[in-house]
Amino acid sequence: MMHYNKYPEIKPGLKLLKRMYVVTMLFVFGRAFQAVSRVDRGAKEVFAKMPDDFVLDFCVVPNGPHMVVGKDEKGRIKYMGWNPAGKKVTIYMKIKNMDAAFRMLTFQESSCTATSRDRLIVDGDLPTACGVLHIMDLLEVLLLPKFLAKLGVKRYPKWSQLSPVRKWTSRLLTYVRLVA
């Protein structure tokens, strides 16, 4: 006869440190989304193409954390906090697990690499999702020093693509808005 007690039910634990890091990064990214949409020309163009009811939930499945970003009534991009409940999310971008999220947000894997390793599930309108990923690449370039950002994006923009003037104004303004 089997001794059931010898083999108890196991509830896999939490990964608290990773979770804390991811929560922080998602908060920063959320704020930065909002900030960059107000200050950068390129970002404005991308956001303009997105539908008016755009609400993005960028999250780690199954238990979060979440980052909800969307357009408000005036069509401006807004960081809507960490709780998707009650919001009409139009596009989900889900990272399959906490480890993958940590790897991605510590720039061990760029968003493209993560996508090609099937770590990211997109549920919703694909062109919008592409836009979001473009913005993320842009944010990495703007927010991070070059040596870090190079890890995160496929092609770090040269002068001809992103003039230093635009880069530095956008970078400064984004930081200001992020903190303020």
């Binding site: 193409k49 968003s111 493209c112 996508t115 090609s116 997109v122 694909l126 062109p127 919008t128 999702a129 592409c130 836009g131 990923l133 473009h134 994006v153 496929k154 092609r155 693509q161």
Partner: peptide
Amino acid sequence: AMGDATQFYNPEDLD
């Protein structure tokens, strides 16, 4: 094309 998801699997970036 800029809204097509396959771009992320392309080895080089495209704008």
